[in-house]
């Protein structure tokens, strides 16, 4: 069962999560009662890394036009900064007393805080990246919504010109996202939906062309219109399913049944 929903987040957090768990277990089993070594240097390395993350994080916030990211990311940065301070305090306390129990608690609290804060930050960033893909998906939905008002060949050519780059981007982004996910069921749904969209797109265009040609010839267009609408609706459903799955981050037990 995957704990982290993307491979990138997993590769960043898993090693530290394992180490923190070990420390917590040692503490809970009261096997950490011996003298602690001098932790000044590793704590300084964490402090420097945190200072860099805060700098890079603020730049990301300032350069982003995603209001949700701008609103949520500062709290994650503060959490990491606060945790870093706890580690510095723990190190100072352990220097004075290598057997200090409050220092050990601070060390654990700090390490957990770094893990939690970094996790929140990565999730915040990841959700923002997902929103970018969803924005592209919604552009495709907007184009599909106007498929039924296309009545001339000129409009159809423009429709294809507008839709094609959007579909290409969605296809590329969803394909890359699918490869990033750790959850196999979510990956499979994205692959299936994307394949359907790729298959349906040329059929829809063909259906629209038939409708436009029949209309130009003054022939009956009821069936051609129904066919076109059905294909547009199918594509809309597939894109909506992609949007739904892109937003899933938690493990859903039922989906494995």
């Amino acid at each position: 069962m995957p704990v982290f929903h993307t491979k990138t987040i997993e590769s960043i957090l898993e090693p530290v999560a394992q180490q923190v768990s070990r420390l917590v277990i040692l503490h809970e089993e009261a096997e950490d009662g011996n003298a602690m070594p001098n932790l000044e240097r590793p704590v300084l390395a964490v402090s420097n890394a945190v200072a860099n993350l805060v700098k890079v994080g603020r730049e990301t916030i300032n350069n982003s036009d995603d209001q949700i990211l701008r609103q949520e990311m500062p709290a994650s940065l503060q959490r990491v900064e606060k945790a870093s301070k706890l580690l510095e305090e723990a190190s100072a306390m352990l220097n004075a007393d290598p057997y200090s129990q409050p220092a050990r608690k601070k060390l654990i609290e700090g390490a957990r805080g770094i893990l939690q804060g970094t996790s929140n930050l990565l999730l915040c960033f990841d959700e923002s990246e997902v929103r970018k893909i969803i924005k592209e998906c919604k552009k495709v939905l907007d184009y599909l919504a106007v498929a039924e008002v296309i009545e001339t060949m000129e409009d159809l050519v423009q429709f294809v010109k507008d839709l094609s780059p959007c579909l290409t981007k969605v296809s590329r982004d969803v394909d890359a996202r699918e490869k990033e996910l750790t959850h196999m069921v979510h990956r499979e749904i994205l692959v299936r939906c994307l394949d359907s969209v790729k298959t349906l797109a040329p059929i829809l265009i063909c259906g629209m062309k038939i409708y436009v040609q029949l209309l130009a010839q003054g022939k009956k267009v009821d069936e051609a219109g129904e066919n076109r609408n059905y294909l547009a609706a199918r594509m809309t459903d597939e894109i909506n399913e992609i949007i739904r799955v892109l937003q899933l981050t938690t493990y859903d037990e039922d989906e494995w049944d």
């Binding site: 090693p15 530290v16 180490q19 070990r22 040692l26 950490d32 003298a35 070594p37 890079v56 893990l115």
Partner: peptide
């Protein structure tokens, strides 16, 4: 993305710190 690299640096540094704390305990227990 730079933010991912920065986050990675933190977790590597924190893992090293915690590992040092754990290792010292195990040696002495």
């Amino acid at each position: 993305e730079m933010i991912l690299d920065a986050a990675k640096s933190i977790t590597i540094a924190t893992a090293a710190l915690v590992k040092a704390a754990c290792a010292a305990q195990r040696e002495l227990v």
